[in-house]
Amino acid sequence: MKRWYLYPFSLGYHMVTGIRNTMYDLGIFKSTKFKTPIINVGNLSVGGSGKSPMVMYLAKSLSKYYRTGVLSRGYGRLTKGYDVTNYDSNYKTVGDEAMQLFERFKNRFVIAVSEERVPGAKKVIDDMDLDVLILDDAMQHRAIKAGFNILMTDFNDPYFKDHLLPAGDLRESRAGANRADIIMVSKCPDELTEETKQYYISRIRPTKSQKVFFSSIGYDENVYGTRDKMLPDNNLNYYDILLITGIANPKPLLTHLAKFSQRVKHLKFRDHHNFSDADIKNIVAEYKKLGEYKLILTTEKDYVRLKTFDYLRDLVYYWPINVVIDRKEEFNQVIMNYVNRK
């Protein structure tokens, strides 16, 4: 969203972030390096750009061969400090994104949270004897120097068309993309032409050492509920649907859901919304207004919060997503080359 009337304030923001980045570039501000391979998945903008599905993809792939860990800030949790996600954790203690990872993968890889990335990275690497660590959303957290950076940018709102906060949604200037090893254009339409790809590459203008990839959202064949029970017949067209979202950009989900059902009422909340009792009462009231055959549908991230409310536990279903990468084998090889080289 562009807010041109705030552009004068963006000039001040540009000066502050520019000075900060220069201090890191010159070594005046300390940036800690690690011997263990660290892959950062980040972006330049505020809001959803597909980081979480990419973190999932990398962690799942790398954990087949290496002792793998994921470190996030634990945004939205009610606690502070370092913690490792386990069966006693919930979204209030580790955040919804860490809990989402654990709900899907359990102990397949280590999932830790720490708002202080440097001590958090040291502790999880040493305590868990990791071979590789994935950082979630640390592009601007330059106190830690990742060995490999993946910059995510939304196909429908690419960073090269955006502007700095508060006039636009960029956390730092477009020049920050120069720190990336891979620039991933995410949430692309299913039918993406070579002409369109070349247009994006021409606007990105990658350096000789950078690679540009394209990816889309892939929805699971099944819709799941409590204890991984699947929606009967998986036929969404059969139901009146109350869609609950607390994510930055629900548009892709709405577009995909429209292919299956036109009987959808959408209740939209802000990203990482901490649902209150009043919210739940409103959700229940809206649910009761629906027809005889009805269900509550949400995202995988929102599900870990909504299912904690007793009344909703057996009513709410979620639709898992995965990232689908164009030239996947080449992408995988680039990642493996980095990890093996380290």
Rank of each mutant, 00 (worst) to 15 (best):
Y13V: 12
Y13D: 08
Y24S: 05
D25G: 05
S31Y: 03
S31N: 07
S31G: 06
F34Y: 09
V41E: 00
G50H: 02
K51I: 03
S52A: 00
L58D: 01
K60G: 06
T68Y: 01
G74D: 06
G76C: 07
T79E: 08
K80Q: 09
G81N: 11
Y82S: 08
D83G: 10
T85V: 05
T85N: 02
Y87G: 15
K92D: 07
A98M: 03
M99R: 01
F102R: 02
F102L: 08
K106D: 04
K106H: 10
F109R: 13
K123S: 11
I125N: 13
I125G: 07
V132R: 04
M139T: 07
Q140S: 12
I144F: 08
A146S: 02
T153C: 10
D157C: 12
P158D: 11
H163E: 14
L164C: 07
A167Y: 08
N178P: 02
D181V: 00
K187P: 04
C188I: 10
T193S: 06
R205K: 12
P206Y: 08
S215M: 04
N222R: 13
K229E: 13
L236K: 03
N237Q: 11
L242Q: 15
T245Y: 06
N249M: 07
L253R: 05
L253M: 07
L253Y: 00
L257R: 10
V264M: 03
K265H: 15
H266I: 08
F269Q: 15
D277E: 06
A278W: 10
Y293V: 14
Y303A: 02
L306K: 00
R313D: 14
D314V: 15
P320N: 04
I321C: 00
V323C: 01
I325V: 11
I325F: 11
E330T: 14
M336E: 14
N337S: 08
